[in-house]
Amino acid sequence: MSAIVSLRNVTKSYVRGKEKVEVLHGVNLQIQSGEFLALMGPSGSGKTTLLNLVAGLDQPTSGEVIVGDQRIDRLSRGALADWRARHIGFIFQFYNLLPVLTAEANVEVPLLLTSLSKAQRRERVQTALKLVGLADRGKHKPNELSGGQQQRVAIARAIVADPTLLVCDEPTGDLDRQNAEEIMNLLQALNRSQGKTIVMVTHDPRAAGFASRELHLDKGQLANVEAVA
């Protein structure tokens, strides 16, 4: 298994007012293809920042970010957008579905950036919805779905374009225990049976338990923890 994500000596700092705040200090990280990685740490540790760098939403102040043999720290904004469309599926804590569109239409959005025909798009959408177990709810709007169902739609949207990497930011943060468990089961199934590489930020130890490896981030630096089977 090759390293599908490589971070080499990555630092990230912001300028807030007159102060320069360094959030990540020389992080080195390798993620293997097919891994399910959980990133944990207290708030302010920089875990979301790290996730954003891996997902191509942000660029490091220094260092290299390589995903699937591509150095994404050098890409322009436009190229990065293109790259994201093809390689990343993102899952948010608050789902972030478009409220006016149906579940099907929401899942279809990433496919609008491809050159697939309408029939082909529809087919992919149905497959994705089936995979997350919501094939019968395609015509519902977000406000007609429960929290757990909305997150599943979001997951369908994240996988519909067959991305290289699934990136999750607190996917169970807004769900109750039962729904959280359903979602984590789903993610785990996607990882094990479909071989999807998943990087997840969470503060919930129960959610982290579904991952294959746990990493801790504290004050911008990584500390390893033994891999969970």
Binding site: R77, G78, W83, R84, I88, V109, P110
Partner: peptide
């Protein structure tokens, strides 16, 4: 979110 999904 649209930008996240890859919209330029």
């Amino acid at each position: 979110v649209l930008k996240t999904l890859g919209f330029s």
